[in-house]
């Protein structure tokens, strides 16, 4: 799962956004840099979550306001590309605020609701 996809997911049970990401295995796969695609996606992303992810994965601090024009800092777009499109979560879990767990296996998150019963 790429971090871009993570930005589109919410908990199917409680309908809350965002989920909490706890990766155990992260992989970087290089892809072609496409600035226009990033620019097109930025208005569709939750920028607060993007900034939070950037901190979580130690990509550094992103500007407060999402860049809108292609003339803005090239570095930011490179960083966004590396973060959103090249970083893959291979193994890990997505956690909802109420504790529901969605495991990620082989890069495929399993978003089916399984209820935990520890009795």
């Amino acid at each position: 799962m790429r971090l871009l996809t993570y930005n589109f997911l919410q908990c199917p049970k409680t309908k809350t956004f965002p989920l909490i990401l706890e990766p155990t295995q992260v992989e970087t796969i290089e892809t072609e840099y496409n600035k226009e695609f990033i620019l097109r996606m930025i208005p569709r992303l939750d920028w607060n979550l993007v900034r939070q992810v950037s901190r979580q994965f130690a990509f550094g601090e992103l500007p407060q306001v999402a860049p809108k024009e292609s003339t803005e800092d090239e570095e930011t777009f490179r960083l966004l590309h590396k973060m959103l499109l090249e970083t893959h979560i291979k193994e890990g879990v997505l956690k909802s605020q109420d504790g529901t767990i969605y495991p990620i296996k082989d890069g495929i998150p399993n978003m089916l609701i399984t209820q935990v019963n520890d009795e």
């Binding site: 919410q10 199917p12 208005p43 992303l45 969605y102």
Partner: peptide, 27 residues
């Protein structure tokens, strides 16, 4: 970009109504 296992009847994709309650910007 991504492959997700989910059920369309209880889909995990973001709903815009949820977005708007969290942040000031609306997409």
């Amino acid at each position: 970009l991504g492959i997700v296992r989910c059920d369309i009847l209880h889909n995990p994709w973001r709903h815009e109504s949820i977005m708007s309650s969290f942040t000031s910007f609306k997409c």
